[in-house]
């Protein structure tokens, strides 16, 4: 009989964030599918009470918590100790967690401490014939595998946005505190965070639209001229009006070293595709992109995809986008921005 543990790190206010609620949906699906399985929730953070109340409606058999100042920091030493203690206290055989930066940092190591195994970047779970299967990608989103594990404990770390967040009733509720031995001297201290420079454009997972800028923006246009100076305000204008995420291909962030004109605001943090991110957004608009696999993996997880490109045979769009507009992106985006401004 499986004992499922939902392991989550709470937000600064003690609540459970969206990624945690998403994985709770997955945990409930597994509990439902595996006969006799029970669900335990384990929470780690500066405080965990609000989160405990938030999820009590899913009827966990236990809610375990580790809280305190030490656990306010997203830090390997304390997080791993807390996660290990909760997993042991829960006697969990299947441990589910959201793949936040904090969880991803520690949970494979924790799996080792538990003499178990971890699978990260899981994007689907399924139970069939009494057996749990998970789905994850290999080779930078080039192929998808369905996996089972014969050993326990099995730590399953799910990519954010893979499941619909759980919604259910909440009420104040208590949790069982789990004691965690904290070393006398912690060598690592988290001193804060550093936000991108003001106005910098990055991939923001919470936005509706991903705007993908392809190398075409920096190439010679129909009249033989390079028009980066015109491209930049068009792209920034669109991002400003829509609050979209900005992604770009590797060549867009690499070309600077070659003395080629580049979009000044593109950095490696914007890189999507083979060696960059594969963000998840409901919509994606690709402009001036060209390429086949592996270049197009950058928008593998974009639900609705549209592209503007002058080549109707473009490999980025053909068979991969829902709509391909064969037109000059400079002209279209200029008009799109005008219309967006008018409608504000």
């Amino acid at each position: 009989m499986e004992k499922i543990l939902l392991l989550a790190f709470t937000e600064t206010d003690g609540t459970l964030g969206k990624p945690g609620l998403e994985v709770l949906s997955a945990a409930l699906k597994i509990r439902e599918g595996l006969a006799g399985a029970e669900l335990v929730v384990g929470l780690v953070g500066a405080k965990v009470g609000p989160a405990a109340g938030q999820i009590v409606g899913c009827s966990p058999s236990r809610i375990l918590g580790v809280e305190g100042e030490h656990f306010s920091q997203s830090r390997y030493g304390t997080d791993a100790a807390a996660a290990e203690a909760i997993c042991k206290a829960a006697e969990a055989t299947i441990i589910l967690a959201a793949g936040t930066a904090r969880a991803n940092r520690v949970l494979s190591g924790v799996a080792h401490r538990l003499q178990g195994n971890a699978d990260t970047h899981v994007c689907g779970v399924d139970v069939a014939d009494g057996a749990l299967k998970v789905t994850r990608w290999y080779y930078r989103q080039r192929m998808q595998a369905v996996l089972q594990r014969s050993s326990r404990p099995w730590v399953i770390i799910c990519d954010p946005s893979s499941f619909a967040p759980w919604t259910g009733s909440s009420r104040d509720d208590a949790f069982e505190a789990v004691a965690v031995p904290v070393p006398d001297s912690m060598r690592t201290t988290v001193t804060g965070t550093q936000a991108p420079a003001s106005g910098a454009q990055t991939i923001r997972p919470d936005t509706e639209v991903l705007f993908v800028a392809g190398a075409g923006w920096t190439k010679s246009q129909a009249d033989g001229k390079v028009k980066v100076n015109e491209a930049e305000p068009l792209i920034l204008g669109f991002l400003d009006l829509t609050k979209a995420s900005l992604g770009g291909s590797k060549s867009m962030v690499d070309l600077a070293g070659e003395g080629q004109q580049v979009l000044s605001f593109m950095t490696h943090l914007n890189q999507i595709g083979q060696t960059g991110a594969t963000p998840r957004h409901p919509k994606g608009l690709a402009t001036c992109c060209h390429g086949e696999e592996p270049h197009a993996v950058g928008w593998r997880f974009i639900n609705e995809r549209r592209a503007i490109n002058k080549d109707p045979n473009c490999g980025w769009a053909q068979g991969k986008a829902d709509v391909l507009y064969v037109e000059d992106a400079f002209a279209v985006m200029a008009r799109v921005n005008e219309l967006l401004k008018e409608s504000k």
Binding site: D254, L255, Q260, H290, G291, D311, N313, G315, Q318
Partner: peptide
């Protein structure tokens, strides 16, 4: 008659079959 598999545009041949790359700095 481009089929996206064998008969592809010359640009796509660069990416699918040629896999052409030029490191910066030269």
């Amino acid at each position: 008659p481009l089929d996206g598999q064998l008969l592809v545009s010359q640009q796509d041949a660069l990416l699918m079959g040629g896999k052409v790359q030029a490191a910066p700095g030269y």
